[in-house]
Design a protein around this nucleic acid. Sequence first.
DNA 1: TGGTAAGTATACCGGTCAGTTTAGTTCGAC
DNA 2: GTCGAACTAAACTGACCGGTATACTTACCA
Lengths: 192, 192
Amino acid sequence: MTEQPVMTPAAERVLEVVEKLFYDNGIHAVGVDMIAAEAGVTKKTLYDRFGSKDAIVRLYLERRDARWREHVTAVVEQPGRFSPRRRVLLMFDALESWMAAENPRGCAFVNALAELPDPDHPARPAIASEKQWVLDYLRQLVRETGARNPRKVAASLFMLFEGAAVAASFDVVAGAVAGARDAARQLLDAAL
Amino acid sequence: MTEQPVMTPAAERVLEVVEKLFYDNGIHAVGVDMIAAEAGVTKKTLYDRFGSKDAIVRLYLERRDARWREHVTAVVEQPGRFSPRRRVLLMFDALESWMAAENPRGCAFVNALAELPDPDHPARPAIASEKQWVLDYLRQLVRETGARNPRKVAASLFMLFEGAAVAASFDVVAGAVAGARDAARQLLDAAL
DNA sequence: TGGTAAGTATACCGGTCAGTTTAGTTCGAC
DNA sequence: GTCGAACTAAACTGACCGGTATACTTACCA
């Protein structure tokens, strides 16, 4: 989450280009030569700015996480004062529009974890923190509904949430996110 | 699912060794030299038996899928004649024991999909078929309970199922699979 | 006016990638 | 007793990996 001070134009171009390359092709499959070529930047510049590929991977995930959180909070906390119960369900609307607009390859953080098994990889904190944030946010929203067992309910909604992303990326269930939202409503209402 | 006719001892060793290497480190991170060395086999032999790394990847996923289906059906269809409702929930017991015994790196098929974005990769059918089987099996089990809307209920349980695996691999929710089973019971009972 | 940061262009490093080649060994079956 | 299948050993290919080195240009700023 620690946003870098200022990015030079070339560095900014690299981070823009990398967002699509890493997500679409996977991290290992994208080499630094391809990144430099696609961004219209020399490898020298790339290494002067970032120092290593791993650092670029870290920034890729941190920036994507930041965009994702902005998207979610913009949907959930939109003006109009929705009820706490409604705000919980808006999380799933946020996921639905994110998946539709962004990409069909599932959760970038789940995918990144699959590619980076090393617990000491510099990008791991960014990966862990995204999921922790989603869970914490759900917990807060559920708590505000006054539901019984808010932690347990939030955990169930979290799994529906992540499962919906998996189901959508495998294209095995039609209307996965909408179905997850329906199930979430049922679980939530049963605890109210 | 098409199991190969007969594997020579060396080929069998390769497939045994690859199961752990690919799952633990990811597919891209494991080279054919490492596979050959770990299996105590020459690269020549490896290529004589399998022809390409992609073919080994395909067999890795097919064999893991076969083991997984055997595990699930052994738990769900264990002698003692459980009720249909109980058998649905046994799916989650199967997942729990699988995760505990096998590995903490989440679903191998979700991870493989993250690493193999090419829709034409020879291993893709194996990846898709595992998830389709889980969904179909859940549909069948739910149908046998006589629940209303069996397809919709099964889809919700499927997402809880996949989400539990993600939650467990991120280690963000304690007792993820047990929590998913509780939520599944609630959704199922509401449809009976 | 002179220094510095940001950039280009290009060649290079050692290592690893998937895959091939050549030569020789072991062993059971017909 | 010979043929073939399964295997070892080891060198090799060309491409690509992440990362570095050298030399030069541009532009702003004190």
